[in-house]
Every structure is written in structure tokens, then in C-alpha cells.
Amino acid sequence: MNVSDLPEILTAQDIADYLVISRRRVYELFQISVEKGGIRNFDIGNTKRVKKEDLLQWIETQINNKGHKVS
């Protein structure tokens, strides 16, 4: 999967598929504050969504903070 294949608004499953991690781990990352390494997200009803640009920014932050573990 390429970045261009991703929709502009992502579900936890979209993120899990793209990052090749479990959907459960994505939801764990949603619960962590952005300042501590979580993924910025928003609610639509009972579901969580992420803007594609926020996910890409989160990935860049993870790369730039390579020595820091996400808690």
C-alpha cells in the first residue's frame, strides 16, 4: 500500500493495514496524548478517524524521535 492509496480520512483499520500493526495497537495509540507519541484523531459518533496529513506527520515525528520509545 502506498500513501497515495490512502483516503483523506482514515479508519483504525486503514492505519493498521498501512503500518502493518494490529488495529488494537492503533486504538492504543489513539489513547496516548499527542505530546507523548499518540496519533491525533477525532470522533465521528462512536468511531475514531484520523486525517491523512496527521498520520503522515505522526510518522515523521516517530522517525525524527527514533531514540524515544512510544509509551
Rank of each mutant, 00 (worst) to 15 (best):
S22I: 13
L10A: 07
I39D: 00
K36W: 09
V34C: 11
I39H: 02
R49I: 00
Y18H: 02
K52S: 04
Q57T: 07
I21D: 04
P7R: 00
N2E: 14
E28F: 06
Q31F: 06
I9Q: 13
I39V: 09
I32E: 03
G37P: 01
L55N: 02
M1E: 09
N2R: 11
D54M: 04
V70A: 07
S4C: 11
I59Y: 08
L6C: 08
V3C: 03
N64W: 06
V26R: 03
I15V: 11
E28D: 15
L19N: 01
I63V: 14
Q13L: 12
G45L: 03
N64E: 14
K69E: 15
L29N: 00
E60P: 02
L56H: 03
I63H: 13
V3S: 09
D5N: 11
E53S: 13
K51L: 09
I32P: 02
K69A: 14
L10F: 01
K69N: 15
L29A: 01
R23L: 04
T61I: 13
A16Y: 06
Q57C: 04
V50T: 11
R23W: 02
I15T: 06
T11S: 07
Q31H: 13
T11L: 00
L55I: 04
I21A: 00
K36A: 11
D54L: 03
N41H: 13
V34H: 09
I32H: 00
T11C: 00
Y18A: 05
M1C: 09
N64V: 04
G38C: 08
S4W: 09
K36V: 04
L55G: 01
L6A: 09
R25H: 14
Q13Y: 10
F30M: 10
D54S: 09
K66V: 10
R25V: 07
I39N: 02
V20T: 07
N2I: 05
P7W: 00
R40N: 12
L56S: 09
N64A: 07
L10N: 05
D54A: 01
D43K: 15
D14K: 04
I9A: 10
F30S: 01
L10V: 05
D17A: 08
N64L: 11
T61S: 14
K52D: 04
L55S: 01
Y18G: 08
S33M: 07
D54E: 10
V3D: 13
N46M: 10
T61Y: 07
N46T: 11
R40W: 04
R25N: 13
R49S: 04
I44F: 07
K51D: 10
L55H: 00
G67F: 08
D14Y: 00
Q31K: 15
I21C: 03
K66L: 12
V26S: 06
L10W: 03
R25S: 12
Y18I: 09
